[in-house]
Design a protein around this nucleic acid. Structure first.
Lengths: 352, 352
DNA sequence: CTGTTAGCGCTTTCAC
DNA sequence: GTGAAAGCGCTAACAG
């Protein structure tokens, strides 16, 4: 072992009195037959020298990076949890995960990340449906990089194999129906246009939830981004006249919290006059006053599915749990989109 | 270019009609003189072939991974933002960042991550002060891996070069003094023992903030982890008798929010009867009702400092901004700990 | 200015 | 069972 440097496989080989090929064999627990004696000698040498295999050399030699990439809109809230879970899943499949933030969808930043990932020769990629451009996607797919989206809608099937999406539409339907079933005489959706795909899904579901009561029920779609929180509440109150209570379904818990604060400010009682349902089930949803009825993000399930799909696309052997999971969900795919149900968590911002 | 494979430097060389050394030279913009003609030929070949340098080979050859590691308690809130910013900073220095979550300080998980980072031959590491064990730290330092902590207190100087810490103690002092200056007749700190180092800093500052009024002012340290939110409020109310208003300084905004909800529940007015100051300035602090007075986390500054310190420790040339930053802060280090001031954001959970 | 060549540390045939 | 040797793709002296 050269001074002051990490021991290499060569050092281990000479220390153990065997060839480097043999060392490699025992380290990788290859299926080739080896005498227990040799194994012992090598393992001892490894410990004695504090040998640690060099991942760069291994990967270069194997011609695969054993690395996967994840591109997120940012690292906050749900996305952070998503990254954390996914990292764990991939690790259990033997892969390293590199996470990037698209930094507010800046196309230049995104471009840079893709290039970087390609240079690292990532074996696969998962991206939020809105975090990368069509151009980048085509490039990736063209290079043959396995890719799975999560929360991506409207990707043409020819460039996308699979998107694992939360079923915001269904959740939204459920929210409306909950309002209707609990006395709301007017219902609203307070969205954020910048939510884009996710926003559209919610609108679609909101409308679907009204169903044949759409005609007879006062309702409206509000853009909180444009109107502001106060403006959104104003508008909902104006449109509903003296119909009470009203139900407001919001893009996410953050907006729900702001609306509730606005109600407090004006002395409007929640949920007596205004009922509110949020989305994301953030930590504060439970702790605010009143606590916020919301939808839980099934991060565990979603990351499991994302991982399983990517592994399959990469031709990796799935463990039993993964196979079962995949099989059970493969059935309910709509085209290349897979939808995951979300559970509503009823709290005190709605009547119950 | 071999079929179906990424072009290599050899392909580019033959395409451009030069040697691979020359290609390497122009790609790396080395300082060796090269004819413009050669450069052009190579660059054209690169484009034509869609050549992309293989990071694994580059790093193996250079004997450095160009990769840095970050170990966090988890990916939520402040930590997520921290990771995102730090990634950007390091990227601008030409380094890749791999982020890991210690997953609730599980020593086994931590061990695994360290081992993994070492196998990847990371050029340096930054870790939250509580996310890695003394043992791991010694190991890393022993191997000669540059290491900088953030929010780490009480690390012996011989194994730690530098810790870039938020000055929770000073902020806590400030919180108490604010309470005292705004009519509070009893003050409390509601902490979380599991916050450990960060918790101790707050306690220290809280006490210091009382100063010579400690004797004459009713105060107490409460452990919300043990008492629960309701219990914490009970205790504060009990201890303060009919002194009003009281001030409660909380470990973080999440706890502040819970306390506020508890007050609402009981019809206790905030801030008239109970004033509250949180910590972290989470998004919801602004949106809750009443909005929460809190301390802003200077993530931008902290990550800049962390990056600058690590770069210096790695013998990397700092840019001008980095040098200036370092110089200005080097002066105010206490031993190997550097303290960053935090700004209080006054909102409606306190009198003003 | 450009090319030759010896590695970087490990994997993987293919003989022995 | 074990080892010799040919790479993996690139960098960095060192010649020329």
């Amino acid at each position: 072992m050269r001074k002051n440097k990490q021991a290499t496989i060569i050092d281990v080989a000479s220390e153990a009195g065997v060839s480097i090929a043999t060392v490699s064999n025992v380290i990788n627990r290859r299926k080739v037959p080896m005498s227990p004696e040799t194994i012992r000698k090598v393992e001892e040498a490894v410990v004695r020298l504090g040998y640690r295999r060099n991942v760069m050399a291994t990967n270069l030699s194997r011609r695969r990076s054993n690395e996967l990439g994840l591109i997120l809109p940012h690292f906050g809230g749900y996305y952070g949890r998503f990254a954390e879970k996914l990292e764990q899943k991939f690790h259990s499949y033997g892969y390293h995960l590199s996470v990037f933030s698209a930094a507010g969808m800046d196309p230049e930043v995104e471009e840079r990340h893709i290039e970087h990932l390609l240079q690292r020769r990532v074996d696969g990629l998962v991206s939020h449906g809105l975090a990368i451009s069509v151009h980048s996607t085509q490039q990736l797919v063209g290079e043959g990089t396995p890719l799975v989206f999560f929360n991506g809608w409207g990707w043409p099937g020819d460039i996308t194999k699979v998107a694992v999406n939360l079923d915001f539409a269904k959740a939204s339907s459920q929210a409306v129906q909950y309002f209707l079933a609990h006395g709301c005489r007017a219902v609203f959706y307070a969205g954020r246009r910048k939510g884009m795909g996710a926003n559209e899904q919610r609108i679609e579901g909101f409308l679907a939830g009204l169903g044949d009561r759409a005609e007879s029920t006062v309702h409206a779609l509000l853009d909180a981004g444009e109107l502001g929180v106060a403006g959104t509440l104003d508008e909902a109150l104006r449109v509903s006249g003296d119909l009470r209570p009203i139900g407001i379904y919001t893009f996410n818990d953050a907006l729900a919290l702001e609306l509730i604060a606005e109600c407090h400010e004006r002395g409007i009682r929640v949920p007596d006059e205004v009922q509110i349902i949020g989305m994301d089930n953030e930590h504060f949803a439970k702790a605010s006053f009143p606590s916020i009825t919301s939808f839980e993000m099934p991060v565990e399930l979603q990351t499991s599915l994302v991982a399983a799909f990517l592994m399959r696309q990469m031709g990796e052997e799935l463990d039993e749990a993964g196979t079962l999971l995949l099989d059970s969900y493969l059935a309910q795919m709509k085209g290349h989109e897979l939808l995951i149900d979300m559970d509503m968590v009823v709290r005190n911002s709605t009547q119950n």
